[in-house]
Write a protein that binds this DNA or RNA. Sequence first.
DNA 1: CACTGTGGCCGTGGAC
DNA 2: GTCCACGGCCAC
Length: 946
Amino acid sequence: MSNQEPIQIFLEGRSDQKYITSIEGNYHSNKVKLFLDDPVKGKRQEDHRFTPYLFMKDLKDHKIQLYQNSSQRDEMIKKYKIKIEKLRTDGNLRLDSGFKYLVTSDISVNSLTQFFKGAGVDPWDRKDIFQLNSPQEQFLIQTGKRLFKGFENYKDIHKLYFDIETTGLSPYDSKIFLIGIKDNRGFQHVIEIDDTPESELEGIELFFRVIDQLKPSIVCGHNSENFDFHFIIERAKLLGSPLKYAKYPTSQGGPIRRKKSYLKMASDTEEYEQTIMYGYNVMDIAHAVRRAMAINSDIKSWGLKYITKFAEKNKKDRMYVEGSKIYEIYRDNKNYRIDRTTNDYTIIKDNEYVSPTEDTITGKEIINQYLLDDLWETEQVDEVYNQSSFLLASLIPTGFSRVSTMGTAVTWKLLMMAYSYEQRISIPNHDKKRNFVGGLTRVFKKGFGQRIFKLDYASLYPSIMIEHNTFPPCDIDHVMRRILIYFYDTRNKYKKLTKKYEKTDKESSTYYDVRQLPIKILNNGFFGSLSAPEVFPWADLDLGEEITCTGRLYIRLMIKYFENLGFTSIILDTDGVNMSAPKDVDKHHYIGLGINSLVEKNKHYYGVDAVVAEFNDIHMKGVMGLDVDDEWKASINMARKNYVNLTYKGKAKITGNTLKSKKLQTYLENFINKGVKLILNNKPKEFIEYYYQYVEKIFNRELPLSHMANKSKVKLTNREYIAREGKTNINGKPLPKMAHMELLKESGIEKSLGETIYYINTGKMISHSDVGNCSLVDIETNPNELGYYNAPRYLSIFNKRIKPLLCVFKSDVRDTILVKNPKDRQYYTSRQMELIMETEDTIEEVMFLSFEEITFWNKVGKDPNEIFDGFSIDDSLVKLDIHKNKEIINKLKEKFKSQGVEVKSFHDDYKEGDFVINHKFMNDKEIWNLSEVISGSLVEMEELKV
DNA sequence: CACTGTGGCCGTGGAC
DNA sequence: GTCCACGGCCAC
């Protein structure tokens, strides 16, 4: 354990300074200001200095000469107080050709860049030669300080929540009438604004004065970057305000401003305007929710009302007002009867008698309470979804708003840059981007299954990296390996503690559970970073591919092992297989040896758990091991990555985008949710009846427009969409139109990025596609409104979606179920309605290494059959068919040799013009080909008989 | 002073 | 009808 201490100190920051909540630096000096919130001494600021630096490659390699002659250079070095230090490379080629000089200036980051600009190179433009951190990051890296040190919980940070109410959506034709403010230390206030411009400006100014008084560390709202701040600032400008708000009275901080910034959500990046307030972290909670949404497909919307319910944090007695009625109720000077236990209210009509004992409330009071309840919920959502960013910020040397918007590869880059700076190691030259082999995925059995187990490798990719030592050689201190092992151990420790306190001490349990979260994020992101050379300079694609190819071997090994024991593989995806167990599986009994860390010593295991524990103890090695992820009562297996499972509690869990998507129209979703349960509970006749009833409803337009509406997410601004018009695809054809963007363009409505819009196809025939045949639908005002829609087309879309579900029926029945008109409905016998399961992909095929895999192993000069050397597992399970292949290939080679032709195999090092034997698996058959190497690739010439 | 990966399914618009 | 490129979303 003790050898992990330096890593822990590095990650948590070697400086002991506590309670830093934000840092302000700049490019024109070497000064930074720290903002602290000491629980005893209170809020204060500190001035600090740092030495601006950048990492630089050897300029000679880029044919760049710094200044005309050495005397001129020396003069500039003196002027800008430049120092150049050579960093460690230990003879590693990528470090030698990387950023191996550390250049510093005692003056400022600008003087550093000025020095190079004077010589004709702008470091900001030449990311290929220079690596720079922001002043804030430079300070943190240099001093070993970290944000939020000393704060045990996110709750301990002083946070201010706000929300505004406006008369409309645009600041140019509507105005603010309420601003709600609440902090997490007992303050709350609603600023009321009347109809005059003076009052509105006063309200805005008061809002900033309140912030200035309270000095919270974090200022946040829900969707505040896109909406509230934009609105407030634009209104203030229109009303003639100079916008010099939110300064610390004693500071020299500049005015509030907005800066182009990026929000990273899994593989998506979105631009937004970030609000900058000197000394504060300005956060948008919707960002945290949207990042969670990108990873968790069960979250359907990032709206405040939805997400509070999803997180089960909704206030039970909250005041609720429909969005369109807020202004009306606020302004109409009416009184309402209210039930204080539920906060339900009804309007009191003019001349209506009200007894003095009745509880009443004014419209204004309703809206004020509504606003405060919104803020209360905002705080709850913040606590749930920003927790991991808060914890990450105490490990990663950068500001809070950046931590909560950047991607995982940048996170790892900052960690590695910090380590390289501390240890004076060069930053490697980046690897070249290329495609590579990823996870293996198959569906072996299609249709209806019962009693299904999911067996998957615990953290497959990180485990492979640790067990097979796949780390880049350019990491000369092996720090990535050490960090990963530290994370692995720490996370396991937290997981064990979470479990230990689960029943006795809920608070401690949650404390540890929350702490394993940032580690999980860093762990999961590591493999992706290692394969992202354009972002992460330490990336190594051969290693990335070795990890995935090794993963493919592990999954094959597992399939062979369990099939041998009578298990049936159903669906395979990357790191796990859904299997059905043999009938006698419950007879299995195993007493844990505890050799494998996933197995408890002396614990009695039964059934599938026993089989898996034995596999782990006896046959796995080191950190590698299988988990029994779950057990299900029944399943529908439709296609690769697409299946539905029934839990023993009766819940249907849908996996894959065939039946689960945020774009799925509500009418489809409603049918699917009920329909899959009927099939899973083995009620095929009821399913068929339900299907025909639903066809009738769609056909006769009995379903509300809000349920039929297509959902599209806005990913382009109107301007970007219009700019797309002249563009073509790789074949020179124009890019197709997008129905929802056409609607926005025509109506002149500009939606924020990330918003969902709803529209309905109003054509007459199936062939009437959406473009030119659709109109926008307001799903909120009249959710139950019926109306005209393109029934044949929606029915056809419905049938297409349902089709994959029919894989549970016999093939002759399957083809007759779907109808275009309810009068064509079919009737079936019980025998016809038996649910089935049939073979799709074969085990034999999947045991073959793909051509790409063999090419890879060949390229790196490794034998995949040696991956399991040292594992105590039966050779026949481990050794793959490539040995058999080798025998056949050798025979074929000899045959050609006897005819005087030199032939190679793809195991060999082949060149342009060589003849090569290769093989593939098609329709369950092995096919052998003779190919010629033309322009670096294999061109098939003839099929060979074996 | 943007940017983790591959594999897979489905819908769409447009060309033939 | 069939094919294609592309976008979107999802699984891991």
